[in-house]
């Protein structure tokens, strides 16, 4: 079965990412496919570059776990509307708004909300992980 997922919580303040990542691992163990992971609301902070995981949480370095998901060719899509107002921008948006830095991690892409709807429409199931 094909799944579209959405993550609504920020890293280390909500457990949305932990739940989503474990769910992704379980889906893959069962042979399911993932259409796209969409980051919405405060979930856009999952794509913020330069996160330093506290040593006590070393086994749960979220950015490394997301990198492993991206390495499998699964798209990590950050909502552009939710992202840019929170300072999560790629180099194109950095240039457009004349900002000091691009802050989006290279494993993630900045996309429109339409990509959430398109992913859901192409998938058999939609599961969201609230903050």
């Amino acid at each position: 079965m094909k799944y579209a997922l959405a993550v609504h919580g920020a890293p280390y303040s909500s457990n949305a990412a932990e739940h989503a990542l474990s769910f992704i691992e379980a889906l893959q163990a069962c042979g399911h496919d993932i259409e796209r992971v969409f980051f919405f609301h405060e979930g856009v902070y999952q794509g913020l570059n330069g996160q330093v995981t506290p040593q006590s949480l070393h086994d749960n370095a979220l950015q490394a776990r997301w990198a492993a998901v991206a390495a499998q060719g699964i798209e990590l899509a950050v909502c552009i509307a939710s992202g840019i107002k929170r300072g999560v921008v790629d180099s194109a948006e950095q240039e457009r708004y004349d900002l000091p830095a691009a802050t989006l991690h290279t494993d993630f892409t900045l996309v429109g909300l339409g990509q959430l709807i398109a992913a859901i429409d192409n998938a058999d199931r939609y599961v969201e992980f609230p903050a």
């Binding site: 919405f40 509307a81 429109g112 909300l113 339409g114 959430l116 709807i117 398109a118 429409d121």
Partner: peptide
């Protein structure tokens, strides 16, 4: 906003 985008689609 997401509801409006879905409607646009």
């Amino acid at each position: 906003e997401a509801a409006m985008v879905a409607a646009v689609f």
